[in-house]
């Protein structure tokens, strides 16, 4: 049988097939590179956000309670005995003092002044007009006979 030359139609069909295969291979290569990168980015952002958010809230709360006398003052605030003699304790003064500290701590960590400090009895520092996302809790000790109380710090 004599060899027959491919017709133009046949050459075109093979060319299209080769082009399709090359396109598939290229797309596969691109996706092979892009997909891991996209997944990595999504997960890194998620993980970092979670870690950063909760760690920031935790560390901010820790930093707040590490300030001189603030632990005792917050403890007495939460215990809610009212104002009285011990070192001129005054609940409104405590709120102002805590707000002053958080106004420095929170922006340096989050870039915003968005925070809310509260306990079971109510909000200590009222929230600004923003939605908070991360929170940290800590049980603080109250005067003997009143056990302990949870304080929550929420940040953006």
């Amino acid at each position: 049988m004599k060899n027959r030359r491919l017709t133009i139609d046949e050459k075109g069909g093979i060319g299209i097939a080769i082009a399709i295969i090359i396109a598939i291979v290229l797309v596969t290569i691109v996706l092979t590179i892009l997909i891991p990168l996209i997944f990595l980015k999504i997960h890194l952002v998620r993980v970092v956000e979670i870690q950063y958010g909760y760690s920031t809230a935790d560390l901010t709360l820790l930093a707040l309670l590490s300030d001189t006398d603030i632990y005792e003052k917050l403890s007495l605030y939460v215990a809610d005995f009212g104002d009285n003699a011990i070192e001129g304790f005054n609940r409104d003064n405590v709120k102002s003092e805590v707000a002053l500290i958080l106004d420095k701590l929170v922006p340096s960590e989050t870039g915003t002044r968005c925070y809310k400090l509260s306990y079971a009895g109510g909000v200590i520092i009222p929230p600004e007009d923003c939605d908070t996302e991360f929170s940290a809790n800590v049980d603080i000790l109250l005067p003997y006979g009143k056990n302990k109380e949870k304080i929550t710090l929420e940040i953006k």
Binding site: Q51, Y54, S55, D58, L59, E72, S75, D139, I140, Y144
Partner: peptide, 25 residues
């Protein structure tokens, strides 16, 4: 990592609490 952070924070918070327990006691 979060567990470690929580544990370290818990220890730190505990130390704060035990410190405050001194005058209250």
């Amino acid at each position: 990592e979060l567990a470690v952070i929580n544990a370290v924070d818990a220890i730190e918070f505990a130390k704060k609490a035990l410190q405050q327990a001194v005058p209250y006691s």
